[in-house]
Design a protein around this nucleic acid. Sequence first.
DNA 1: GATCCACAGGAACGATAGGTAT
DNA 2: ATACCTATCGTTCCTGTGGATC
Length: 408
Amino acid sequence: MKVSIMDSDYLDNIFDKAVKGTDLIKNRKTLTIDYVPEKLPFRDEESKIIAQVLSVVLKGGRPSNLLVFGKPGTGKTAVVKNVITRLKRKSIEHGVEITVTIINAKTSNTSYKVLYDIAEDMGINRFDKKVRVHFTGLSMGEATDRILEFLKRNNLHVVLVIDEIDSLVEKNGDDVLYSLTRANERLLDSGFISLIGISNSLTFKDKLDPRVRSSLSEEEIVFNPYTVIQLREILNDRSKLAFNEGSISQAAINLCAAVAGKENGDARKAIDLLRVAAEIAERERADMVNENHIRAAQEKIEKDTNYEVIRNSTTHTKIIILSILKSQSGMTGDVYDIYVSLCNRIEHDSLTQRRVTQIISELDQLGLITSNVVSHGRYGRSQIIKIAVSPETVTNALKDDSFISILL
DNA sequence: GATCCACAGGAACGATAGGTAT
DNA sequence: ATACCTATCGTTCCTGTGGATC
């Protein structure tokens, strides 16, 4: 009986703690990806330029199209969003009507889905039952026509933000962008579209058709990565909002900044790291987030993402990952042979080598494996493929699949 | 220097699935 | 009922290539 009393004390303690809010974290929301702070440190210049470009809209003019470049986590999206909310506020003050549509090209990963999202966001489907842009079934041309028709009829001034625009072009080419940049010619004076493209890739422009390129990048702005010192200050600011006084050590913040600094100055990752570290510290019921929590968080993030990616792959992809793990040499031919024999063992049809190399290069892009092309002279050219994840993570993730677990 | 291996990776295309227009 | 739309996964066919060996 003694035990159960202790138990209940112990539980009470947890609940009390939770209720009293003696947690480390004061405001959890400020550590999530969606949170956009009021002021973004070190991005004044960039904000100014974007604001200047867009300010034309307040006088009823069409702002130049704008292309925003920068590595992930350099604050592109946040700055653009910030400027736009301010612009909206001002436009209401001045009695100017503008429509702002923000879409993410990575989540809506096909050309048609992009158009659908635009239509949805602008509210076409709510206004007009007859000329809706449906989820599917329309031709691309018809969908664009309907969107433009809608703009024309309502004389809308649209600022269209396409986030991660590079992933759209990568996968589907620039057809959509072409028709969007040409849209103003068709609209004449009834309404307009201003495009703001946000790209993670600096070489994005090279993949565009020259006509699209020149029209899309009437204005350009590059976001440089944050330095470690800047990251530290950002994290300091953020942790003042997020944590209770004295719940995080300066050393932990410094380490966090250093880690993220190594990863291209990615502020998003830095903040993510902070959040996971805080969660770990809370679970341990530590009274302060310290450097060890940051290190643990780093490990956890890496493991979790890889685990999820593998677990959610198709059977073929899983077998290929396993083949790479089992292969001694890591050469394509070797991996493929192993793959085929594994497929035979579970009586699963095997894919052609062409398809397998494609899947392998997809895995490479995800960072699950590394591959280098090596020439063996007379004995041909091949990739050397290696798993970039710990073998335990792989086997853990594969264990859940009853099909595959036999092969382990 | 020519040859030739063992692939890499582009292009075109088909089957299938989910849908609209008339 | 029929024509037509796009996306995804896969196949077939193909051209290109770094460098050890002849």
